[in-house]
Each structure stands twice: as structure tokens, then as C-alpha cells.
């Protein structure tokens, strides 16, 4: 009896699990499986769930086009990360140390920037970047993306630094250490986990940006992965096999990053969103 009940319970759980997770994960499998099938001929049927005739032809079409975009995205995302660190982390230290109304107001302002839809400023950014000659350039995209990412870096690192015990700084002050030193030798080394976490998030932010890539490219200039994939899929409308391959290639870098940086990402999710 109990045995039967147990079997029933386990299979019930399994069924619930399947209902919950299959719709989430199966599309990923379907895309990868389809990317290895020849779908562009007149005789091709719908993608098969288990590919019988595996081909790499789709990848030879997609790779040459997408790889360049991946390179562009890598440069942009790395620069966005670096710039966000450079500006955001010292500011986070300052705010953590200053405290008071000034600090609260600045944090509030930074928080508000996170609410602004990117599309709401893109027309203005377009006209401004045109004046400054930044349209269709790496620098323009990096600056625009950083404006979305840097405040986030600042907010999270500040929250972490606020939680550092004040005695550490007092001890440093007794040593005669200046504020620059308090930053470089006390708060920065201790905040490394938070800094890495925001680095990952700002990297992802720069990597996934589409609004700026679409509106600030001026028709020429560097094409990040998002824009490249968008154009690829609108160009290869009937060669769906190649689009499957391109989508798969485009999903690989962030997946690698996810598995490499899992512990920081999870920490960031908790620190970033749950410190209420």
C-alpha cells in the first residue's frame, strides 16, 4: 500500500515537473535540433523532433555572418563593463562613506534612471549623437549602453559597501590613510564579490542591448550581435535552417557566461533585488 502510494506520489511529482519545465526547456532543444536539419529545400518537411539527416550546412551560412557580430558585441560589452566599473565603483564608495541626504538623493536619482525605457530617450540620443558625431560608432554605443548600466553598478556596489563595518575605515584612518587609500585598500578589495557581480550584469546589459544598436547605428557602423541576428533573420526568410543556426550561435555566449559566472549571478540576483 505505502509502496504504491509512494510510486504514485513520485510519478505525480514527475508529472508536475514535466508540465512546469518542458514548455520552458523544450523550445531550446527544438531550436538546436532544427539547426542541424536541412529546411530550405522544396522537399523539406517540418523540422523533426529527432533529426534523422544531420547537416552542418546551416552553420556554414550562419557562422560567417554572426561571428563578426559576436566580436562587435564582445568589444562593446567589455567596454561597457569597464566604464561602468571605472565610474560607478568609486562613486559607490563615496556614497557609502558620505551617507546622509546627499547620498540618498543620488541613489534615488540612479534608481530612477533604471526605470527609464531606453526607447524614451533614443530619439533625443539620436539627435545629440548626430551633433557629436557619435552615430554608427563603437564609442557612441558604449556611451549609450553605459548610461543604462553604470547606475546599476553604482547602486549594487554601494549597497554592499554600506554593509562594511565602519571600524575597518576607522582603523585605516588611524593609520593616516587618506580617502583614496580607504577606497583602494579597504572598501574595493572587500567589495570584490559585488564588483564582479555587477561586472557580469553590466556585461550582459551591453551584450543584450538592442534599442541603442538599432537606433544609433546610422545605417552603417558596428553591428552588435542583436542587430546582426535581427538583420540575418529578416534577410534569410525562407532559409529557416540558417536562422535556427544563427539563433543557436547567438545564444551560446550568454549560456557559457551563465555557467561560468553562476555563483556571481545568483549572488547578484539576491543582492540586487532582494535587499529590501
Amino acid at each position: 500500500m505505502t509502496r504504491n502510494y509512494k510510486v504514485l506520489r513520485i510519478s505525480g511529482r514527475l508529472a508536475v515537473g514535466l508540465v512546469l519545465f518542458v514548455p520552458l526547456l523544450f523550445p531550446l532543444y527544438w531550436v538546436v535540433a532544427s539547426s542541424f536539419q536541412n529546411l530550405s529545400t522544396i522537399f523539406a518537411n517540418a523540422p523533426q523532433i529527432i533529426p534523422t539527416h544531420v547537416t552542418a550546412a546551416n552553420y556554414s551560412v550562419a557562422f560567417g555572418s554572426i561571428i563578426g557580430n559576436i566580436g562587435v558585441s564582445l568589444v562593446i560589452a567589455l567596454c561597457v563593463t569597464g566604464l561602468s566599473w571605472l565610474i560607478g565603483v568609486p562613486a559607490a564608495h563615496a556614497l557609502a562613506r558620505l551617507g546622509g541626504t546627499v547620498s540618498n538623493v543620488v541613489v534615488m536619482v540612479m534608481l530612477v534612471t533604471q526605470m527609464i525605457p531606453a526607447i524614451s530617450v533614443s530619439v533625443a540620443l539620436y539627435t545629440i549623437f548626430h551633433q557629436w558625431g557619435l552615430l554608427g560608432s563603437y564609442l557612441g554605443l558604449i556611451l549609450a549602453d553605459t548610461s543604462l548600466q553604470m547606475p546599476f553598478a553604482l547602486i549594487v556596489v554601494r549597497a554592499f559597501m554600506v554593509s562594511l563595518p565602519g571600524e575597518l575605515f576607522d582603523a585605516a584612518a588611524v593609520d593616516g590613510a587618506g580617502e583614496v587609500r580607504a577606497f583602494t585598500s579597504v572598501s574595493l578589495p572587500l567589495a570584490v564579490p559585488a564588483v564582479i557581480t555587477v561586472g557580469l550584469f553590466t556585461f550582459l546589459g551591453g551584450w543584450t542591448d538592442f534599442v541603442n544598436a538599432l537606433t544609433l547605428n546610422n545605417g552603417s557602423g558596428p553591428q552588435p550581435l542583436t542587430l546582426g541576428l535581427f538583420k540575418f533573420s529578416t534577410q534569410y526568410t525562407t532559409n529557416t535552417g540558417a536562422v535556427f543556426a544563427a539563433a543557436t550561435l547567438a545564444a551560446i555566449p550568454t549560456t557559457i557566461l551563465l555557467f561560468m559566472g553562476m555563483r556571481w549571478i545568483r549572488g547578484g540576483l539576491r543582492a540586487g533585488a532582494l535587499k529590501g
Partner: peptide
């Protein structure tokens, strides 16, 4: 100490002013 902290803080404020606040202002004008 104040001077150093302000110097740490100013770039972030300038950045947000230049790339968020100013575009917002221009956006409203347009």
C-alpha cells in the same frame, strides 16, 4: 576626505547628466 569623496562621485553625476538627463530634456523639447 570630502574633496576626495566628491571627486569620486562627480564623474557618475556628470555621466548621468550628460547621457540621461540631457537626452530626457531634449526629448521633451522635441
Amino acid at each position: 576626505r570630502r574633496f576626495a569623496l566628491v571627486a569620486f562621485l562627480v564623474p557618475s553625476l556628470v555621466y548621468v547628466g550628460l547621457f540621461v538627463a540631457y537626452p530626457l530634456y531634449r526629448d521633451i523639447v522635441i
